[in-house]
């Protein structure tokens, strides 16, 4: 009864979020710009919403495919839930990205005019391939058709997920490295963020008695990311380059450590701490490098800018999350109708 009420509440919130975010998305597509973006600071919260949702989806995909390939019984038992979540989050990510790029068709056009030297092309293509692979895997699973190619499909989905998370770092590493010319660690950061967010969300998709299997990787990943961020923080604190203001803040690793401590006893609380922290880590990571305005735009925008997301940008984050939750809900309904289990 409690779960049913909770589901209805989440569903109602998602529908409200879809309408609220959808209004701002359509404003952005058809009316005019509503974000706090300018020629100096052009990648803002809507793009970070894409990064966050895509990385969370990647983390879940990696967990699911790696568990499957390693023949882990607990992961295999929750395959459908994990697959549904990964697919829904990726759809939510693309919904947020479509608002950022001005038109949903731009996302599709990107795939058909390749520039192999562009990290953004690789990012778009890898995530599109990941979406297709997950979609195909879901179709096979839903139809209950065991396929000879399943092993191949799982391996391919794992490789693509890892590559996509790494490439995402190389795209946004240019943002953080804009002023200080450093950012080689960006790909490691995005991969760790993907794994940490995936493993933070995973316990909520698992039955209570099966969560044991997530404890070791989940805690290690959260601790690993906290150590990584702490190292970056200490490195930045010792930096002698004044212009290169550090994007890492001390509260980031501390919150991740707090989330790690309650990972076993209170997985929902752990996720509630870890996921917003990871979103903020990704936001700071993308924004900081852009705060320093380059070239002649300094004359018009000032040498340094500050950033606080506005209502429209927050609405797009809500829009992406709502699309993801509604897809998750609809996929689960589909599974129930087709007689499958929704785990």
């Amino acid at each position: 009864m409690k779960t049913a009420n909770c589901n209805i509440m989440f569903l109602a919130l998602s529908v409200a979020g879809l309408l609220f975010g959808g209004y701002f998305a359509s404003m952005e597509w058809f009316v005019g710009p509503s974000y706090v973006a300018n020629d100096g600071l052009f990648w803002t919260l809507p793009l970070v919403a894409y990064i966050f949702l895509a990385l969370t989806s990647t983390g879940i995909s990696i967990l699911m495919t790696a568990g499957e390939l390693l023949d882990n019984k607990a992961v295999k038992a929750h395959k459908l839930s994990l697959l549904t979540a990964a697919l829904s989050l990726l759809i939510g990510a693309f919904a947020a990205l479509a608002t950022e790029m001005g038109s949903p068709f731009h996302v599709i056009w990107l795939l058909f005019s390749p520039n192999l030297s562009s990290p953004i092309w690789w990012m778009g293509t890898l995530y599109a391939v990941e979406l297709l692979l997950l979609g195909f895997k879901y179709y096979l699973l839903l139809r209950g058709r065991p396929s000879n190619s399943e092993q191949w499909l799982t391996s391919a989905a794992l490789c693509v997920a890892v590559a996509a998370a790494l490439v995402l770092g190389s795209v946004f590493g240019t943002a953080v490295g804009r002023t200080g010319y450093q950012g080689a660690d960006a790909s490691v950061l995005t991969l760790l963020c993907a794994l940490a967010s995936g493993l933070s969300l995973a316990p909520l998709l698992f039955k209570e008695q099966a969560r044991e299997v997530l404890l070791l990787p989940g805690r290690r990943l959260l601790a690993g990311l906290a150590v990584f961020l702490l190292t970056l923080y200490l490195y930045s604190a010792r930096s002698t380059v004044l212009a290169d203001i550090a994007w890492v803040q001390l509260w980031m690793p501390l919150l991740l450590l707090a989330s790690m401590l309650v990972y076993k006893a209170k997985p929902a609380v752990s996720a509630l701490i870890a996921l917003p922290t990871l979103l903020l880590v990704e936001l700071f990571f993308v924004i900081q490098g852009q705060l320093q305005v380059l070239g002649p735009k300094q004359t018009w925008l000032g040498a340094v800018q500050s950033y606080l997301p506005n209502t429209a940008e927050i609405a797009i984050l809500i829009f992406g999350c709502s699309v993801a939750y509604l897809c998750f809900f609809l996929f689960n309904q589909l599974q129930v109708r087709l007689g499958g289990s929704s785990d």
């Binding site: 020629d39 790029m101 001005g102 056009w109 990107l110 943002a175 070239g295 002649p296």
Partner: peptide, 24 residues
């Protein structure tokens, strides 16, 4: 006609001389 408005060029340009048409 090929531009999708991703702003990667603006991000990559170290001279800050590429502009975006936020409005018509």
């Amino acid at each position: 006609e090929k531009c999708i408005g991703c702003k990667a060029c603006m991000e990559n340009c170290p001279y800050g001389v590429i502009s975006f048409n936020w409005q018509r």
